[in-house]
Computed example of a mutant assay.
Amino acid sequence: MKKITYLLSLFVLLTAFTCEDEPLEGEFFEETNLSCEIAAQNTQNAAIAFLDVNDDNYTQLCTTYVNALVAEMEFCGDPDGSLQTQLDSLGNCDNGTQQDVEIPGTWLMTAWIGEEAIDLNNDGTESINFLDEMDCYNNETIVFNADNTGVMMSTSFATFMFDILVGTTNEYNYTIECELENENTNISWSQTGNTITIDDGTTVTEGTLNGNQLSLFIPEGFVAFSSDFTVTTIQDLTFVYTKQ
């Protein structure tokens, strides 16, 4: 019931943009910043809901996500193509969780989904997908072998610092230091239904398979420090990997 209520609420917000007596023109989208903010928030909410997808609700949650992405592209544009990339990955929402996806192969990290949207690149627009906000972690992969072994490959590492903007208590200016690295971690893995269990010898992590995407929940995966190290911001993360 909670999910149904949420989806109905999101549907109302989305249809509020399209049920006017006159069609919305492109000029309207450019001039109405508030509509862009609402559309972006709808996309973030739909992305979070989609992380809990299962066989029964896949088409419904996927369609809601697609509609939110389309609305955000109309109201906000898509200068870097990231929204179109997300839209393409969803396909036609024909219950991707029932498709047979071969786990062996290379999976590329395509999203960091946080708990709250932030503006890491200081461009005035917050995003709940932190990878959209930085030029780091661009080639992080997991290679699953058919013999249930594999390798997690890390090519970069970021440190996040921030300063509280003068005159505010909850607005920040972030600094990101991205360092290149070449770190490979051997893993073993197993699959039970849509659950993928990954063991790196120290930590066991369970991921959820949604079509060609694998989501891994990382508690306190995002940590940022104030420049004087007196304040720390922590969020749980969901790493999303897409089969290549």
Rank of each mutant, 00 (worst) to 15 (best):
Tyr58Phe: 14
Phe50Ile: 05
Asp21Thr: 14
Pro104Asn: 02
Glu27Lys: 13
Asp119Phe: 04
Ala71Pro: 01
Pro23Val: 08
Ala111Phe: 04
Phe50Thr: 00
Thr106Asn: 11
Thr110Ala: 02
Trp112Ala: 06
Ala71Ile: 05
Val53Glu: 02
Thr18Asp: 08
Ala40Ser: 13
Thr125Gln: 13
Gln99Cys: 03
Phe29His: 11
Ala49Pro: 06
Cys76Ser: 07
Asn67Val: 02
Glu102Cys: 09
Ile38Tyr: 11
Glu20Ala: 14
Leu51Cys: 07
Pro104Tyr: 02
Cys19Asp: 10
Glu115Ala: 06
Phe75Ser: 09
Asn57Cys: 05
Ile118Leu: 15
Trp112Gly: 02
Asn122Glu: 03
Asp100Ser: 10
Asp21Cys: 07
Asn95Val: 01
Ile48Tyr: 07
Leu51Val: 03
Val70Gly: 03
Ile113Ala: 04
Met73Ser: 03
Thr59Met: 10
Val101Thr: 12
Val66Ser: 04
Val66His: 01
Glu20Tyr: 14
Leu34Ile: 15
Asn33His: 10
Glu115Gln: 12
Leu87Thr: 01
Thr43Tyr: 04
Ile118Met: 15
Ala46Arg: 00
Glu30Met: 12
Met109Pro: 06
Glu37Gly: 08
Asn121Gly: 05
Phe50Tyr: 15
Glu31Ser: 11
Ile48Val: 15
Cys62Val: 00
Asn45Cys: 10
Asp123Leu: 07
Cys93Thr: 00
Phe29Cys: 08
Phe17Tyr: 14
Pro23Gly: 01
Asp21Ser: 10
Glu72Asp: 14
Asp100Val: 15
Gly77Lys: 08
Asp56Lys: 08
Leu69Tyr: 00
Thr85Cys: 01
Gly26Leu: 14
Asn45Arg: 14
Glu115Phe: 04
